[in-house]
Simulated scan of single mutants.
Amino acid sequence: MAEPSSGDIDRYLAFFRAAEALKDTMRSGHTRLGRRESTAEHSWRLCLMALALGPELDGIDTGRLIELLIVHDLGEAVRGDIPAPEQTGDKNEEERRDLLALLAPLPEPARARILALWDEYTSMETPEARLAKGLDRLETVLQHTQGQNPAGFDIGWNLTYGRAHTDAHPLIAALRAPVDAETERLAREQAG
């Protein structure tokens, strides 16, 4: 394998510097201490979930799954995260444009590979992509049960969020069941 040119080194570094914005891209979820979580933190836990569950996921390429999870929200580094209840229009189209802008500094082979992963995730045509979407939804509802949510946060909304995606795989559905039970308990307390 040939060593990258100094121009390619600069291009990689420009991309890595731009992608750092994901650390400061805040989501609507909160940590157990009440701090808003970043998209980078969300993506990290998704990758950890895939790594831990890997041996239980027959027929799934865990490495590919982790690659999909790493890039699935990368476009949010440009304009941020829009909470699911507030999304209108075609989020994928806008996020793909943002991703293309973020990937622009990369050498073409790297740019094409990351874009292909993102396209695979959004199309959900592979088992890994469908599982990635289910894990994404599971991680979100799990965080809402763990986090110190702000006043007025509708925890009951979690009971329907991403249901089709989490129910699509038996292991993800089994993991979601106790999370839903916790959500129901929290919703009763909130109403209470």
Rank of each mutant, 00 (worst) to 15 (best):
T25C: 14
M26P: 01
R27N: 13
S28C: 10
S28P: 02
S28V: 12
S28D: 15
G29A: 15
T31F: 05
T31Y: 04
R32T: 13
L33T: 15
L33A: 15
L33R: 14
R36K: 11
S38R: 02
S38E: 00
A40Y: 03
A40G: 02
E41R: 08
W44A: 11
W44I: 02
R45N: 10
R45W: 08
L46N: 08
L46Q: 08
L46S: 07
C47R: 14
C47W: 10
M49R: 04
A50T: 06
L51F: 00
L51R: 14
A52V: 15
A52H: 09
L53Q: 00
G54I: 07
G54D: 05
G54M: 01
P55D: 01
P55M: 01
E56K: 11
D58Y: 08
G59W: 12
I60W: 09
T62S: 06
T62A: 15
G63P: 08
R64L: 12
E67G: 08
E67M: 12
E67D: 15
E67W: 01
L69V: 08
L69A: 08
I70E: 10
I70K: 13
I70H: 04
V71F: 00
H72Q: 10
H72K: 06
D73W: 08
D73K: 08
E76V: 12
E76F: 11
A77Q: 10
A77W: 05
V78M: 13
R79L: 10
R79C: 09
R79D: 13
G80H: 05
G80E: 06
G80K: 14
D81N: 14
I82G: 09
P83T: 04
P83C: 12
P83Y: 01
P85M: 04
P85I: 07
Q87D: 13
T88E: 15
T88V: 12
K91R: 15
N92H: 11
N92R: 09
E94P: 07
E94C: 04
E95P: 06
E95V: 03
R96F: 05
R96T: 07
R96Q: 05
R96W: 00
R97C: 11
D98Y: 06
D98S: 10
L99H: 07
L99F: 01
L100R: 05
L102A: 03
L102H: 06
L102F: 01
L103N: 03
A104R: 10
P105T: 00
L106P: 09
E108G: 09
A110Y: 01
A110G: 04
A110T: 13
A112T: 13
A112H: 05
A112G: 04
R113K: 13
R113Y: 05
R113H: 14
R113D: 13
I114E: 01
L115V: 11
L115E: 07
L115K: 03
L115T: 08
A116C: 04
A116M: 11
L117Y: 09
W118A: 06
W118K: 01
E120C: 06
E120N: 03
E120P: 10
Y121W: 14
T122L: 11
T122M: 15
S123W: 04
E125D: 10
T126N: 02
P127T: 06
E128W: 06
A129Y: 03
